[in-house]
Design a binder for these strands. Structure first.
Lengths: 385, 385
DNA sequence: TAAATAAATTTGCAAATCAAATTAAATCAA
DNA sequence: TTGATTTAATTTGATTTGCAAATTTATTTA
């Protein structure tokens, strides 16, 4: 019910009854409880449009922002970006910290996270104790339910109970997940999947990530390490990937893959930024064009495989960097559509969503909001961390 | 509850309470209803082992076989195989009919199905009216909820409401689905996934099919045409597939793909059966070996992609034909394991399940059993056909 | 034959939810 | 301005669901 109110931002009881299928009587009972607990509040709807109707006017309900505060953190390559949201989902503050290193011991990382949160909350005039939960997004292979990191480019060690380490340090509930999963959560909460119960989000950062939402739930797989689109294979014995295997999609579309190819060609030996390669391609340079084109065709192939497996209603290509434009080009989407099983019914909607650089942290905050709501209602967290 | 009893075949109330988490009191209430409706029955447990215990003895419950009968049908290339199961899931009769054609008009196919069912029930001494539901498995792209066939190799037309056509002809509820999905249902009901709520079944017949079970539910995708493993791409601009596209997994591992390659080589120009090619490979023929090996490596790649996406706990390689042995070889499974993201926790269990030729029809029967049980309990079918 | 033991059932209660009746808050029409 | 009308929200009383605890039933053991 909280989630429903959050989705609509403002909604009167009678519409809640309509949209959830719960009777009006029960909606009254439930919302009365939530009001008493201070989790929601009534707003007198001042929209003049509605004043035309006769009868008792609807009274909108909304989440009470002051009820809780949550922090979202993205652990990036050499930075921590953090956001503070109120319970309504409104962003109150954000804060970005540069890091000296890009790989840490778990304890040292916990120090940095703790410092970043202090910085964030103090600018917002809030004490760290007033935070009800912290969502953390990190690249790598993560078991979100356990708060366990099998491997991450940000950690020296493998198999770290990072969720527990952070929780011990911060003294508030910590919700840890793979960063791509959190983008999916953000798309559902703030983004382009507000109305969708089943969709797939694909993110391109330095690697290729995926978040799968089925029946309003993140699908995480048995060990919590599914959705590794970047390491699905698109070529038998193909290009070498950072993961040590060959033929991974990432090894054809990631920055390092494009630069590796550029380095082969005499003409582009000195190219060190993907942007330069892309602009050369746009200017008609045939070698640059061939490199970029192949990346697009490989990406289309990876996308097509996802469509052939999931037959989703919606795919969101979600990225912060303009330099992935070549992968989001209409020729690439068309190539994907030509590589899926064809039936006489339109295929998935594909939308491109370019976010600012806070997208990752906001996803983490959205995750924390979901979990804190769960705790507020049930009294305990669902996962087993 | 019915499903739980069916899974255990025989189970006393107290164990049902244990395994479902429902209180003993409620189990008594529910099972009393089921007993009254005649859907289950008590069996005096005659196992001498239990007689050692003091106290009131447990009374096993089981599904009452006579409560309902269902038919399962597989529409194959030039045959219809049918099975008759009682409500307990016990196979009462089976019947195989050869067909003149392999592609039909919908009405003509309905005639053949109707005749086959008559033949089946009459050998079992049952009238067609005593059948509570018919499960139908067909190759192609199917929206199971609607009973709608977008395309099937067995039908001349595209976009046929085959479920409705069959239901009108037979006068009993018809449950239609893609054949690979039904194998997944059969694995859950009778096979190797009795204890698993999440698993993936891969079938190799003339094509490559897949059934995805997530949270005890078949995952079918938005339009009902997901799980098309056979048409995921394993090679950019690769071998031509029957579907008209290039690089499909099927175009590397299906019979026709192997024979196509054999036809290229002078040495194997006359080979017309895959079995011959396989035995040549086993005998050390280098060309045959190269053909068969590549199929295995491509299959491993397709499998690895599934693991990287789903991180399943169990994969069942399920096939009726011995001639897929080269794809189920341990080298292939090992190659798959070497192509998935590696973490310090064991990957999916992979099991090979070779069925008799009635596997497809039994899957259809299992599907019908599930749906007829649903109707018996709720009073209506869940889907919208 | 009585005591002990364990399964199954019954009983009475608590929580959740709903349909229908009622109340509340507004507009409309005379 | 006032009563009729309309629509939202609440209250009421009933129903359903499911449980814990007490009781009954069926069996073994002493």
């Amino acid at each position: 019910m909280l989630a429903e109110i959050r989705r609509y931002k403002k909604i009167p009881r009678i519409d809640l009854s309509e949209s959830t299928g719960i009777s009006r009587a029960t909606v009254t009972t439930i919302t009365a409880d939530l009001l008493k607990e201070g989790l929601i509040e009534e707003v007198r709807s001042e929209t003049p449009e509605k004043d035309l109707r006769r009868g008792r006017p609807k009274v909108d309900l909304k989440i009470r922002g002051a009820a809780h505060h949550v922090v979202g953190i993205k652990i990036a390559n050499k930075s921590l970006s953090t956001v503070l949201h109120d319970f309504e989902g409104i962003q109150i503050a954000d804060h970005e910290v540069a890091l000296e290193e890009s790989v840490f011991e778990a304890d040292a990382l916990a120090d940095e996270v703790s410092k970043a949160i202090e910085g964030l909350t103090s600018t917002a005039g809030l004490s760290a104790e007033e935070v009800s939960g912290v969502g953390v997004g990190i690249a790598g292979t993560v078991d979100a339910l356990q708060g366990f990191v099998y491997w991450s480019p940000s950690l020296h060690q493998r198999n770290v109970e990072l969720g527990q380490v952070l929780e011990d340090r911060l003294g508030v509930p910590v919700f840890l997940d793979n960063d791509a999963n959190l983008v999916a959560v953000a798309e559902r909460a703030f983004g382009l999947a507000k109305e969708n119960s089943d969709f797939i989000v694909i993110t391109i950062e330095s690697g290729v990530g995926m978040g799968i939402v089925i029946g309003n739930e993140l699908y995480r797989g048995n060990r919590g390490c599914g959705a590794e689109l970047g390491h699905t294979k698109v070529q038998l014995d193909g290009a070498l990937c950072r993961c040590g295997q060959r033929g991974c999609l990432e090894a054809y579309v990631a920055d390092y893959a494009l630069l590796r190819e550029a380095g082969i060609s005499g003409r582009h030996k000195s190219v060190s930024k993907v942007e330069d390669l892309l602009s050369a391609a746009r200017d008609g340079d045939s070698v640059a064009k061939s490199i970029v084109d192949r990346a697009g065709r490989m990406f289309a192939m990876g996308l097509a495989n996802i469509v052939n497996i999931f037959d989703p209603e919606l795919i969101i290509l979600s990225g912060e960097q303009m330099h992935s434009d070549h992968l989001y080009a209409s020729e690439v989407i068309d190539a994907m559509r030509n590589s899926v099983v064809h039936i006489d019914k339109p295929g998935p909607e594909v939308v491109i969503h370019k976010w600012g650089d806070l997208m990752w942290a906001r996803g983490a905050a959205a995750f924390a909001l979901d979990e804190v709501s769960e705790i507020a209602i049930t009294g305990h967290r669902e996962n087993a961390q």
